[in-house]
Structure formats: structure tokens, C-alpha cells
């Protein structure tokens, strides 16, 4: 099968100016992935499905990954000319910057016809709060239908063009996205007929106004 670099070159030849990059996987499995820009993602997915050498007709797995804001250190080496006239010096410059977080959708593609794979696709959202839309690939692979709904439900990624984007595992009135890394679980998700002190303290911490005050009740 073609390497991710070859697939990227084919995509760039077919879609000049599109945003395609190879994301390296440092682990022993070495399943490198292709990061697609949102703009032409669906057209590129169709190309991957239909182009004769690839025929990636089977989208096996779709999932989300939540990447929080993190501080990254850039190391840039710079040569500084020696003012005394000696040989120029090589110095390392470390700058810290805040990399904003994003949500990522990962697709694992295989070819049933040609028996190869996986080819890993990644789509990224702009941030984790208000720019969370990516194009849906359900029109390309039907198997994304429920899995994209699951990513929408648990991660909060909005799939543009999905035919039936509703919550799937949580109930419709649920507000948050439980698979996000900063999700705080409610302390009252389980109704306790005899709440003991720990539960009440937790509930007070979480819902200061609504929680009932702990009081000693006489045993019946």
C-alpha cells in the first residue's frame, strides 16, 4: 500500500492548494495519519474512496480526541556572529507559547476490495468552544452515521452535512459533553435515598445554592 506521504502527494496533485499534512506517529505501530483541512475534506475523502489504487471503501472506526490548551516550548537554533570577530556561535532560543486546544476527529479507513489499510484521517476544529464544526463524512461512508453522532454527543464536535445529528448515547436534554477532558461529573447523578455526609458535602461543593444543608436526622 502507498505510504501516507505518497497519498498526500496524490491528494495535492488532485486538489492543488488544499491543506494536507502528514502527522507522524512516534510509537512502534507507526500508523501515521493525514491531517485534512476542513474546506475540501469531503471531496478528498471521496477521492480516497474512489481512486483506483486506494479504493478505501470501508471506514472502520470514527472517534474524537480532546486536546486541551497546553504550553509548548519551541526550540530554535540561531547563529550569532561573534562581535570579537571569532567564529559565529550557535545558540538555542527557547520560547514558550500557549497552544490553544482543539477537538480532533480520527477516521480509520481500510479497503475491502484491495485488502489494505489502515489509512488514518484527522480533522481538527478551530478551538474547543465556538468553532467546533467539521464537515461530516457520512455522505461518503455510511458507517460514519452513528459514530459521528457519538462524537457529537460525547465530544461536542458539530458535523456539517450530517443527515441526522442528534445525541445518541446521552439523553436529548443533556447539556455537557462527557468525554471532554475538562468535564466535571455531576455529584447528584445517582439518587440516594439516604445520602450520607460525603455525598452531601460533595453536592454542596458542586451546587452551593441548591444543595440541602446536612442535618442530623434521628434514626427511625
Amino acid at each position: 500500500m502507498e505510504t501516507p506521504d505518497q497519498i498526500r502527494d496524490r491528494l495535492l496533485a488532485r486538489f492543488p492548494g488544499a491543506s494536507v499534512a502528514v502527522v507522524a506517529n512516534p510509537g512502534p505501530a507507526a500508523q501515521h495519519s493525514l491531517l485534512l483541512g476542513s474546506g475540501e475534506a469531503r471531496a478528498m475523502a471521496e477521492f480516497l474512496r474512489d481512486s483506483p489504487g486506494l479504493r478505501l471503501d470501508f471506514c472502520s472506526n470514527v472517534t474524537g480526541v480532546d486536546w486541551l490548551d497546553r504550553e509548548v516550548t519551541d526550540v530554535a537554533s540561531k547563529t550569532i556572529p561573534d562581535p570579537a570577530g571569532g567564529p559565529p556561535k550557535l545558540v538555542e532560543q527557547r520560547t514558550k507559547r500557549l497552544q490553544p486546544g482543539y477537538l480532533e476527529v480520527v477516521y480509520h479507513l481500510y479497503s475491502v476490495e484491495l485488502r489494505h489499510g489502515p489509512v488514518v484521517l484527522r480533522l481538527r476544529t478551530g478551538n474547543r468552544s465556538d468553532r467546533v464544526a467539521v464537515p461530516s463524512l457520512t455522505p461518503v461512508w455510511r458507517s460514519c452515521e452513528f459514530q459521528e453522532r457519538e462524537v457529537f454527543d460525547l465530544f461536542g464536535v458539530v458535523f456539517d452535512g450530517h443527515p441526522d445529528l442528534r445525541r445518541i448515547l446521552m439523553w436529548d436534554e443533556f447539556k455537557d459533553h462527557p468525554m471532554r477532558k475538562d468535564y466535571v461529573e455531576p455529584d447528584d447523578y445517582e439518587w440516594e435515598p439516604t445520602p450520607h455526609a460525603d455525598v452531601l458535602a460533595k453536592a454542596r461543593r458542586h451546587y452551593p445554592a441548591a444543595a440541602p444543608a446536612a442535618k442530623e436526622e434521628p434514626a427511625p
Binding site: 512516534p26 510509537g27 512502534p28 505501530a29 472502520s60 472506526n61 488514518v120
Partner: peptide, 10 residues
């Protein structure tokens, strides 16, 4: 502990 990386295995 595993080294940083990812895998899909089926």
C-alpha cells in the same frame, strides 16, 4: 507505561 504514540488494532 507505553511510549507516546497511538495505535488502532482490530
Amino acid at each position: 507505561r507505553a511510549k507516546p504514540g497511538e495505535v488502532y488494532s482490530r
